[in-house]
Write a protein that binds this DNA or RNA. Structure first.
Lengths: 345, 345
DNA sequence: TTGTACGCGTTATCAA
DNA sequence: TTGATAACGCGTACAA
């Protein structure tokens, strides 16, 4: 690794001149010297030492991307197509802007914050944070932060969030399900916080509007840990028979449920209608193709990164950026089954 | 951000002492001072500046993970469940070893190498490289490199590769397909290089061993770009009718093909048998559940990272680490259809 | 237009 | 056991 100092020595000039050429400072170095230096630079394939540069300028050109993993889901966090699509969008945007991306996954908010301060990152994108994290984060850290899909009361005062109209998206889907003639509609998820809560709320609103009463038991809770999921699905499939439609909180769960139902001889949509949320390849590749709520996940990542870049530049942005959803009607929601026909084979 | 210098000043001692406490140097600082400094450190929540540390030590604690994107696949590289699972395994291993992960995606090998030299990364994990890249990389770069799934002749001399017995895995699957009674078996992929070539070779070997002749037309080429895939699938589905089984190079393609066939009224496995390769959630969640060749992708990432960490420590490792595959028999390969029954509905 | 010299925060060397 | 100081590579204010 050749240094500026070394180049200056070999060319018999000062480091300032070399540095000026590197940084293309106009009118501060003669044409002749510029040519000589540039040529040399190209020849030896000069690459600056980022650490030295960062140290001198007190900036890092690094954007930290921290994923907070939930204990009960960790094993497959990054396998979730949602997460990978998101990262794809972020990475692309960061890279095109000349920044670098440092990826960090942890269950521990403290560790995440320590990590980003160590690296003196210029900005931070957070995913998977819950309400209480927001407070701890914002008091510790003064650089720009953009959250993705965070619903929090305290947090929003301090930093920007890129999210989705989860409530409305689900509301519209459930309204559509009701319009197909369904009255017994369950909701399936693994928790009732953040995004899941918003979607649950939308589901309840549609129910209420149609004069359908929501009972606690209509919430089907799936336990995604690998040692629990089979038992969990077994129970859900049993309880599913009481409903004619199930609104799933994600495509992943919708597809998981459909497979489990199919394995038990219950056919979708003849026996029961299923709706998802996300619109990723899991649902679009499945047959019957999944009726779902579309969101543009890659765009979510892109917008989050773009917003952060703006904040780094010192521009102001909205505190809440909400991306739209769209109903994608495919084949898994039809009219309710007749009496007790589940499609058993 | 408080610095060592500042701490030393406030505590009225030298930076050396503070630094020694931070680094827990045995017997180099008195019990009393150690206590005082440690207390102060905790109180002000000291976080070291990595740039300064790296500059002083000439190491970065960064491991670069570079994904070389293929032009014709780029749009969904990171969406591929394979890639995200791989990254998950790498990230976890790197993090647990106290290293950091910098993710970089590019189509341009030159850019990738420039990126890693800039950051002075301690080691490099490469994925998606082809033969000719290997040469360019190895001449430019002297730090440890681990490749994943790279088949190259020149490259292997210079750095370690973590791969799979792709040839054998496919061979065994096709042998199994043949044992089910099939004789007209196609192979589907989007290229004939690297991993795909190895799998194609395994397929051909099984065919040959069974006395089945391979013809060029038995290679079904899918074009995965979004503006071509529909036409591509249309043609493949038409040609598929000439076969009783299709060996797909990946689960993604297997599932994509099954959906396309299903949409045209051709049933799997009644009309045609389909096998995949990878064993990811796409195939296991699909119904009928995909018969496929298992590989442990997360482990691939873990092993790659572990190997790189060893190399960084100066230990020797094998130049080629080959992970095993395993046949996963599920529901998409059965005996061949009778005459011309495709399961049209 | 060019060069000198210092600061960035840390670690390491060596003397006290 | 502690402290002063050089070194890491780069950017830049200021002097020449």
């Amino acid at each position: 690794m050749i240094t500026i100092k070394e180049i200056a020595k070999q060319l018999n000039m000062s480091t300032t001149t070399v540095s000026n050429v590197i940084h293309d400072k106009e009118g501060e170095v003669s044409k002749e010297k510029r040519r000589i230096v540039q040529e040399f630079l190209d020849r030896v394939d000069y690459v600056p030492n980022i650490n030295a540069r960062n140290l001198a300028q007190n900036e890092s050109k690094i954007i930290g991307v921290a994923l907070k993993a939930r204990a009960d889901k960790y094993e497959n966090l990054i396998m979730d197509p949602f997460v990978s699509e998101l990262i794809g969008g972020i990475e692309e945007t960061i890279r095109n802007a000349g920044y670098f991306m440092m990826l960090y996954i942890s269950r521990d908010t403290e560790k995440i914050m320590r990590h980003v301060s160590t690296w003196n990152v210029d900005g931070l994108i957070l995913f998977g944070m819950l309400d209480d994290d927001g407070i701890r984060v914002s008091t510790k850290y003064k650089k720009p932060i953009v959250c993705i899909d965070t619903y929090s009361i305290e947090g929003l005062k301090h930093f920007t969030n890129v999210g989705l109209d989860d409530e409305k998206g689900t509301y519209e889907m459930v309204k559509y399900i009701i319009s197909c003639g369904h009255e017994k509609i369950a909701f399936m998820s693994d928790n009732t916080k953040g995004v899941d809560l918003a979607r649950l709320t939308g589901y309840k609103r549609a129910l209420k509007e149609a004069g359908i009463e929501f009972k606690e038991e209509d919430f089907l809770k799936i336990r995604p840990k690998s040692d629990e999921i089979d038992a969990s699905l077994e129970e859900i499939c049993r309880r599913a028979l009481d409903y004619t439609a199930i609104m799933c909180v994600s495509d992943l769960y919708a597809v998981t449920l459909m497979s489990a139902l199919q394995d038990r001889g219950i056919r979708v949509p003849e026996g029961i209608s299923i709706a998802g949320f996300d619109d990723n390849m899991l649902g679009s590749l499945y047959r019957p193709a999944l009726t779902t709520v579309h969101q543009d996940v890659k765009k979510k990542g892109v917008v989050a990164a773009q917003t952060l870049l703006k904040l780094i530049k010192g521009e102001k942005t909205d505190h809440q950026i909400t991306l739209p959803t769209r109903l994608v009607v495919r084949d898994t929601v039809t009219k309710p089954r007749k009496s007790s026909f589940y499609g058993f084979r």
